[in-house]
Write a protein that binds this DNA or RNA. Structure first.
Lengths: 185, 185
DNA sequence: TACGATATAAAACATATTGTTCTGTATTTG
DNA sequence: CAAATACAGAACAATATGTTTTATATCGTA
């Protein structure tokens, strides 16, 4: 990739994320983005079809980064094996969110949080589908169960953010286990 | 309230809901709304400050209607008493959604569903806070638990909608119980 | 019924955003 | 060095927003 393209792309990304922490996604204009990024109008539209397109690419970039180094868990039919450890996938992600990917938390915390939580949930759904073999209770479809688990996690993170990130990742993991584990026992 | 106001208000509401079933909320313009509602530009802004304002009022109107006749459940410290009945609050709401308030389902099903699911969840949070006394497991804050329950319900409804409303309200209630009840036992 | 109050329509308006097109310049790659 | 490509800058049409003004129709009430 051309160095010029890299610079432009990252300038636009930075400005966009910066703006997101200050105002709602829907209120952000392309004009503001290119002004802050200091690139021409033509350039923006050469890189991204629309503002929504930019949003998707930013999400993909950020979440790919978080989810790329998720510790592999050997397939197991006992879900509790995967969950009941401190260094579980969940805690791992929470630590990432808190310590290494502050800008993701900024995004999830911002006024447009819902937009991103949707992406976040999709990534989680994929992750759980691929990496964890669940012991499915008979009365519930697997697809729905996975959806419930990732939905509950996103819900928890949302609650965590709205409350001001007051709990530790470990504490959140305990909460998560408290609402999810009983399903399997 | 002036009959003229009522007419324009309901004309705008109808057009707005109609448009929502066809395109994303964010793509709908005030111009389209007033064209379809056949009211003047001035009139729209006399009734609603912004499009977001209109959205809020529509949500309030629809959800108030659904939640207004929720059966009162005597306070109980046993959550399962409230949940383990067919005519529980949950089933009641599901029936409403399916049978009596088709336009709410239209809205939740539409491209902008998330916007409304957020409102939906707020209403549920209030409902649960006011009407149900939960037996709180020690390890989890009440506020978070309520949030988890309403979040799980919204999540379930979303899954139901995306799958094409194939399950009966009773079946959904079973699913809901399968993921929620174990927390309390 | 008649009157004053008010809701509306219609049009014009300034302002802002969008996405495209053109031309010329700077940078990279081979 | 040379060709390809990314960019800036400017201009552009099309569209949306929210406000203002004037005139008309409808309402509630005395």
């Amino acid at each position: 990739m051309d160095r010029r393209q890299q610079k432009t792309r990252s300038a636009i990304f930075s400005s966009f994320i910066d703006l997101l922490s200050k105002k709602n996604y829907n209120k952000i204009t392309v004009q503001e983005i290119i002004d802050m990024a200091n690139v021409g109008r033509t350039t923006f539209y050469a890189h991204f079809e629309t503002k929504d397109d930019l949003l998707k690419e930013v999400c993909a970039s950020l979440f790919d980064h978080v989810f790329s180094d998720v510790p592999q868990i050997e397939n197991t039919h006992d879900f509790s094996v995967a969950v009941n450890k401190t260094d579980t996938i969940i805690t791992h992600i929470l630590y990432h969110l808190r310590d290494n990917h502050r800008n993701i938390l900024d995004i999830l915390t911002c006024d447009s949080g819902e937009v991103f939580l949707k992406f976040f949930k999709h990534y989680l759904n994929d992750l759980i589908s691929k990496h964890i073999v669940l012991k499915i209770p008979q009365e519930i479809p697997e697809e729905l169960l996975i959806n419930h688990i990732s939905g509950s996690f996103v819900n928890l993170v949302q609650w965590w953010i709205e409350g001001g990130l007051k709990q530790s990742p470990e504490q959140l993991t305990i909460y998560f286990e408290a609402v999810i584990n009983p399903i399997f026992s």
